[in-house]
């Protein structure tokens, strides 16, 4: 049933062979990766193409936001920066709200996608977030 919900915005994640993967861009000339996706490489202005950025990484930093949550997110909700294993990017991401109280810098995490909050029109939607790797 979650498959029927739209993504919060298009083009940020897609289904991979073993679960969802994060999407970004890769420069056709200098091969740099970017997240969020961009149309032009800011260094050489070459066109980029969509690239899979992977699904696994480690928490670089994290916080639990305890103010009134935006976008229909749960109270509290967690966000952080995750260092991705495959491409070396450090990406801002939602973290699994169920991890509140167990978040740690260096924690190995993987991408998940589930109904989380609402989109710009206030409708329920899918959002990507990082959750703990199974022990």
């Amino acid at each position: 049933m979650t498959a029927e919900l739209p993504p919060f915005v298009p083009g940020v994640f897609q289904a991979g062979a073993s679960g969802p993967v994060l999407l970004g861009s890769r420069c056709g000339s200098c091969q740099q990766h970017f997240f969020p996706a961009c149309e032009l490489c800011p260094d050489c202005l070459s066109a980029t193409s969509t690239a899979e950025l992977g699904a696994h990484g480690r928490i670089y930093s994290h916080t639990v936001v305890r103010t009134k949550p935006p976008l229909g997110l749960p109270a509290p909700y967690a966000v952080g920066y995750v260092d991705l294993d495959d491409c070396g990017l450090r990406v801002f991401a939602l973290l699994d709200p169920a991890l509140v109280g167990r978040l740690q810098i260096g924690l190995p995490v993987r991408l998940a996608v589930a109904p989380l909050g609402t989109d710009q029109h206030g409708q329920p939607c899918l959002r990507p977030y990082f959750t703990a790797e199974p022990a």
Binding site: F8, T63, V65, L71, V79, G80, Y81, Q120, R127
Partner: peptide, 29 residues
Amino acid sequence: LGLLRGGSEELETQLGMVMPASFALRAAR
């Protein structure tokens, strides 16, 4: 007047970034 955001069109905002969080992430690190 709610928490200030960098711009609602930006992806970070759609992923729950609010100004206190951006500095809290620096503080935690």
